[in-house]
């Protein structure tokens, strides 16, 4: 089950930045975070937004079946505070994200991708 007020936009990795750019209005919506989920060898990424005015309302841009060696586009030039979640995504799943560096949280080189189930 899932919250009834969450609206999910299924999209693809190529189109997601474009979609968010067209939809996002910083006066109306509130960027929450980027979330990655390991679904058995494939990564699912959610870009989560909330609404300032409507109660309980949330919006999720969802991309499924991302393999771990693809480059994930960055939305940091649309939402300037998104860089932290992108850096964390890189640390936690060891995936390439545009304009990011490794090591915001994990500095030990022996620890690789703790949230991936195969490692």
């Amino acid at each position: 089950m899932i919250n009834p007020n969450v609206e999910i936009f299924e999209t693809t990795l190529e189109k997601v930045v474009e979609d968010i750019k067209n939809w996002y209005d910083y006066k109306k919506y509130h960027y929450v975070t980027i979330n990655g989920v390991d679904e058995g060898g494939k990564l699912r990424i959610d870009w989560i937004f909330a609404d300032y005015n409507e109660k309980n309302k949330m919006y999720v841009f969802r991309v499924t079946d991302v393999s771990f060696d693809t480059l994930i586009p960055s939305i940091a030039n649309i939402i300037p505070s998104a860089w932290m979640a992108e850096w964390e995504l890189r640390d936690m799943f060891d995936v390439e994200v545009e304009n990011t560096q490794k090591g915001i949280f994990i500095k030990d080189p022996n620890i690789v991708a703790p949230l991936r189930k195969d490692k």
């Binding site: 089950m1 899932i2 919250n3 975070t33 989920v37 989560i48 909330a50 949330m58």
Partner: peptide
Amino acid sequence: PKGETFVRVEAPRGECFYYLK
């Protein structure tokens, strides 16, 4: 527990977001 859910709660410092699956 089965399914997934999005939660927002207010911590003293601001909005705290939870995603559970």
